[in-house]
């Protein structure tokens, strides 16, 4: 069985590297964006925001109106993995959701 030993002073610690990248990624986060479309009903969009994003009535309505009037709304900011999950959940209800690094 082959073994390898790194020479002292020639290696950066992978742990530190990963930790820094994680911190950086977490700090920047990923924005979850919902885009306007001509078919989804306003009440339905409010309902989906409440069901998926656990928003209260007021916030859900505010974001729904933002989508309707401005064409899109940033409905959350999460880690990449959590954003993927939320985008999938929103799309499973037929909403046009995407994610972008903040």
């Amino acid at each position: 069985m082959a073994t390898s030993a790194a020479k002292p002073g020639t290696e950066t610690s992978p742990d530190v590297d990963v930790e820094e990248k994680l911190k950086e990624a977490f700090a920047r986060g990923w924005s979850i964006i919902v885009w306007n479309d001509p078919v989804n009903l306003m009440d339905y969009v409010v309902y989906v925001f409440k069901a998926v994003l656990k928003m209260n009535e007021q916030d859900a309505s505010r974001h729904m109106w933002e989508v309707h009037q401005k064409g899109k709304s940033v409905v959350g900011r999460e880690t990449r993995e959590k954003s993927e999950l939320i985008v999938h959940r929103l799309r499973s209800f037929g909403l046009n959701a995407t994610m972008e690094q903040a």
Binding site: I33, E84, V87, E100, Q101
Partner: peptide
């Protein structure tokens, strides 16, 4: 459909996310 509309981020991250989706 694309998981992002081209707004920043590491392309490899986005590719991975697209595959997950």
């Amino acid at each position: 459909g694309a998981i992002s509309r081209g707004g920043g981020g590491d392309k490899n991250d986005l590719k991975e996310s697209q595959e997950v989706l």
